[in-house]
Design a protein around this nucleic acid. Structure first.
Lengths: 289, 289
DNA sequence: GTAAAAAAGTAGTTAAACTACATTTCCATC
DNA sequence: GATGGAAATGTAGTTTAACTACTTTTTTAC
């Protein structure tokens, strides 16, 4: 996909991920960069090598190891990375953080994660999912907990999908709904881990009943992926520090936006006019006159 | 807020703005940069001077004229500017867009909106809200439609808030809940336009009953703002193109993340341990072992 | 323990950014 | 229109920074 952005754009996160496979000296450079990236953007090679207590060629080798073409390229790509987020998934929120730091870290985690998800998303798979959804007689979204929020949000997009949409809220309703699906229906099952029992079960049952099943998950080899005809892998920089918010739901919401928009655009003029009219009425309800 | 990233750091726009006041030769450099900025990021001074048909020192002078500390600084700031611009430069989604373009536009609308919201958020107001929420006996979140999704998400954060939290789902329950609130309770009312009748009413009633009211809205002068003790203004780049997704809900979700995290960090060790234990159990439910 | 490979540093070279000075162009005044 | 001064711009050279080549040290495998 020529217009998709590449991981080049999130160098900080690349450094975090590659860190364990780097040479010992390279890791010292990495630590300095991760510790104070905004400063490093303005440093010379000599300054950075001193800060990391390695030689200049070692820094050059570090640049090559992380995929940069020299130090100049490192600086440019780091600046680009910092435009998105100044912290990485490895940064914890602690009780020592003042409110400003909390605000920035929470935003940056989410920004960085969205950017990461975008760069890793397989547009061809999205295209297949759009085909399936555009042909659906009915769509049911299954999710629990944070993914339940995404499922409910997706259901609200039923005017864009252009067919009846549901999002059952408890595990019994989920089972019942899945069981009543059949040929021509689509089940979209959402779970970042891909292991939430109720969601996996719903996908399994829906599939057994003849519905097409689409999984939205962060884990390709998960039980959910195994029970779906199609998997939309939404990679996430999730980290498990106690106070780091669950960021996957935002990228899942964006994927829902994409699916609903793309399906809607498939529908043609009558649908388009109908959606426009509905949005106009909704704006009145919302009071945006 | 000294550590907030602002869209002010946008060299491309600076160049456009300053262009008419630049020297003639400087304008030739500006034209090359504006014509092909992505290339310029990777150029040497010599290459750029040739492309602009000026001498090298003239390019250096151009750098100084636009506020850069030399060519190296120009390159870094241009890279940063481009990273911002890439997320903000999209036209409306139309039926002519291929799927790749839709994917990028949807992501970029959301990314640029989060960036904007972050830069405009008043951290002092967030701090006041955190104080109020940390002292609440009970918290109820009110939202409808897309904001209903946010309210439900916020309610799910009750372990972090550390007090009972609710998010009534229909207008009758919202009214009943608001009416039963009292001194010591907090009502958080969420509406991007600030004009959704049911949400405004809930805030009004809750406030009349003695609850502290916090509004999360994109519009400072709205009816919702008028009925709240405290307003968290979450600015949004919302646009009303038919197929541009409702991006405000993502920034509202991030604000909920911030509030819940900050309140949780206020609670102390016993709460901290309790949250940790709960998250551990939840991870098991989610299957992340 | 030994040899080979990998890692890392020193020394030097090259390229790039920048400064100093000279030349050209433009503007204001008569 | 001519002249002088200021501003703009370029040439030439210097300095700095990035990088390469080779040497030394450390690590790994047998």
């Amino acid at each position: 996909m020529d217009s998709a952005r590449t991981p080049d754009d999130n160098l900080l996160e690349d450094i975090v991920r590659l860190r364990d496979d780097l040479r010992k000296s390279d890791r010292r450079v990495a630590e300095v960069i991760l510790d104070r990236p905004e400063e490093v953007v303005g440093m010379t090679l000599a300054t950075l090598s001193k800060a990391a207590e390695v030689s200049e060629p070692t820094v050059i080798r570090f640049c090559a190891a992380i995929g940069c073409e020299g130090f100049r390229d490192l600086r440019v790509r780091l600046a680009r990375s910092l435009a998105f987020a100044r912290t990485t998934s490895h940064t914890a929120i602690t009780a020592e953080d003042d409110l400003g730091a909390i605000v920035n870290k929470v935003f940056d985690f989410n920004l960085s994660n969205l950017n990461w998800a975008q760069s890793k998303l397989d547009t061809a798979q999205i295209g297949v999912a759009v085909d399936v959804l555009a042909g659906a007689r009915r769509i049911e979204f299954f999710g629990f907990g944070a993914s339940g929020i995404v499922a409910r949000d997706a259901q609200q997009k039923f005017p864009l999908f252009g067919v009846p949409c549901g999002a059952p809220v408890d595990s019994h309703q989920m089972y019942m709904t899945a069981d009543m699906l059949g040929e021509g229906d689509v089940a979209v099952a959402i779970s970042n881990t891909g292991q939430t029992r109720e969601v996996v079960q719903a996908a399994e049952v829906a599939r057994a009943r003849g519905a097409a099943t689409i999984g939205i998950t962060g884990h390709a080899g998960s039980p959910l992926a195994a029970h779906c005809d199609l998997v939309l892998l939404v990679e996430t920089l999730e980290n498990t520090d106690l106070y780091t918010p669950t960021v996957s739901r935002l990228s899942h919401l964006v994927v829902i936006d994409i699916l609903s928009t793309a399906v809607s655009l498939r529908r043609g003029t009558a649908h388009h006019d109908r959606v426009a009219r509905m949005k106009e009425g909704l704006a009145k309800l919302r009071g945006a006159s």
